[in-house]
């Protein structure tokens, strides 16, 4: 298996954002009540992560990384402590841009996303994607694949969870477990399933 394909698989299933790394859980739980909204969130996640991770990679390499200003005669400058503000700014800008483009050219898709698109600015998983990219020093191609991969993993997980929660309509649950409680149990069961995928990855 080629490296990039393996990275995609790993990002999407082994290191699944919500289920094994607990990232982006707030939206994961809150927007999985209906399958349509879950699907919209999933698609938006793939798009935003596929854009922001490589963009942040460029910003990190050209401006923020230690020694990035060596060509200008300042090899000792290390701006990496600014990466958090830079990354969140890029994410907010990309989300805003995506919203404007969709509104202008694809108003129907934009309407179906509704409120979820602006909320992606404060999605832990998206910021974490960029932070992991720096921590694991991916190159540009790897960042792109990693972004798309983790977005896909999130989309798959949230759609599956929404599909399962719909079936709960027929279940007679104890009052205290309804809603949030049972959703955690479901997510835990899914997480068990995804844990077995990491065994698969070990043998690839």
């Amino acid at each position: 298996m080629s490296d990039l394909a393996y990275l995609f698989f790993e990002a999407a299933f082994v290191d699944n954002m919500p289920l094994t790394l607990f990232l982006g859980l707030c939206t994961f739980i809150a927007l999985s009540k209906r399958t349509e909204s879950a699907l919209g969130l999933g698609v938006a996640m793939i798009g935003v992560m596929g854009l922001t991770v490589p963009l942040n990679h460029l910003i990190h390499r050209i401006i923020l990384a230690p020694g990035a200003w060596a060509w200008a005669g300042y090899p000792e400058i290390d701006l990496s402590y600014l990466s958090l503000i830079a990354f969140i700014g890029v994410i907010a800008a990309v989300v805003q841009l995506l919203e404007m483009v969709l509104d202008r050219y694809f108003p129907q898709i934009h309407a179906s996303f509704g409120v979820f698109l602006p909320l992606l600015t404060v999605q832990c998983a998206i910021l974490a994607g960029s932070l992991f990219m720096v921590e694991r020093s991916y190159d540009f191609a790897q960042s792109f694949v990693y972004g798309i991969g983790s977005g896909t993993g999130f989309a798959v997980a949230v759609v599956m969870l929404a599909a399962m929660r719909r079936r709960l309509a027929y279940a007679n649950l104890p009052a205290g477990l309804r809603g949030l409680g049972i959703t955690f149990v479901l997510a835990g069961l899914m997480s068990l399933g995804f844990a077995s995928l990491s065994q698969m990855a070990a043998t690839l």
Partner: peptide, 11 residues
Amino acid sequence: LAPAGFFLLGA
């Protein structure tokens, strides 16, 4: 492991 976290929070 991850699943236990979910189960505990659910509980």
